[in-house]
């Protein structure tokens, strides 16, 4: 039973870090109170995990055969990597940490499903690219619709406020649906949990992270995003939610943080301004290579010296 704790730890860390992408702007611009935002986030994460979280579990489970010990080691290595990255103030992608850890175990046992891995890696690159494209399509489309409705300044505010809240809820739903596989996916493969139990435990762990420890990240992310006008911020969150949800449906866990960077980049392309620093792009590149590598090494060492 203690082996499930590493999943709960990973879920908590994921919730604490990633709920900010969904509600940071709305909270920072005072459209919604922090408490209300995290409660909505928690509820929608759990609903997303329960309704659509199963697909990703099969993908992660298909990468390497797992035992109860290897599942524990991989999840713990991913959680430690995520925590380490947080401490070092580097962007955290639990999806990439988890995949790195699974591959670490796989290398040790000489069994890695490379076709499954290719699908996952393509999805990582496709996430920011997808959110850029989604932003380029959704911004003019929804903008045209809003212009057609000709709201006055007050109504426009109200519409954008609700738009940001709805996008935040949808983003949380997508986060739960997409990322729950990272948290408890491996336990379904080992038979420690049923799919329903895994989605419930994973969803609740992510929700707990959002409820208990997301305030600071939310303020930081919100501050960064709020430099966009409220409409652009709404489109950024909404585009990210659409793409992350899309990947949840096809069953590939991806990073919501990298998704939101893509959206903001898309806004920059549309407006002809630089919205993202080169450093952020380098960090994404590091996320694709560095995060899974650290998790891989940690999982490898942990499994090699503790269990073999």
């Amino acid at each position: 039973m203690y082996r499930l704790l590493s999943g709960v730890f990973l879920g908590w860390s994921l919730g604490a870090n990633n709920s900010a992408n969904n509600f940071g702007t709305a909270v920072y611009s005072q459209k919604i109170r922090y408490r209300t935002a995290v409660i909505l986030c928690a509820v929608f994460v759990i609903v997303g995990a329960l309704l659509e979280g199963q697909a990703g579990m099969h993908t992660l489970g298909g990468l390497v055969e797992q035992t109860a010990d290897s599942a524990f080691a991989a999840t713990l290595a991913a959680a430690l990597t995520a925590t380490l990255m947080s401490v070092l103030k580097l962007p955290v992608s639990t999806s990439q940490a988890m995949v790195g850890a699974i591959i670490g175990i796989g290398i040790l046992r000489g069994e890695v499903n490379f076709s499954g891995l290719t699908k996952v890696v393509i999805a990582w690159v496709a996430t920011p690219v997808g959110t850029i494209i989604a932003t380029l399509i959704l911004y003019p489309l929804i903008g045209w619709f809003l212009r057609l409705l000709r709201f006055n300044i007050f109504t426009r505010d109200l519409v954008l406020k609700w738009g940001l809240i709805i996008a935040g809820c949808y983003g949380s739903y997508a986060l739960g649906a997409n990322n729950v596989a990272n948290v408890t996916g491996l336990y379904t493969q080992t038979g420690q949990l049923t799919v329903f139990q895994a989605t419930l435990l994973g969803g609740v762990s992510i929700a707990l992270g959002a409820l208990t420890y997301s305030r600071n990240v939310m303020i930081t992310v919100g501050k960064k995003l709020v430099s966009l006008d409220p409409f652009s911020a709404f489109i950024a969150v909404f585009s990210m939610a659409v793409i992350v949800h899309g990947f949840a449906i096809i069953g590939v866990p991806v990073s919501t943080s990298q998704g939101i960077v893509g959206s903001v980049l898309g806004i920059g392309i549309l407006k002809g301004v630089q919205t993202i620093k080169i450093r952020t792009l380098i960090m994404i590149l590091f996320g694709w290579i560095g995060t899974p590598s650290i998790a891989l090494v940690l999982a490898y060492l942990m499994f090699r010296f503790v269990y073999l």
């Binding site: 007050f154 505010d157 409220p230």
Partner: peptide, 11 residues
Amino acid sequence: RALIPESRGDV
């Protein structure tokens, strides 16, 4: 009662 701070400031 109303408006986000940005719009409040403008009005």
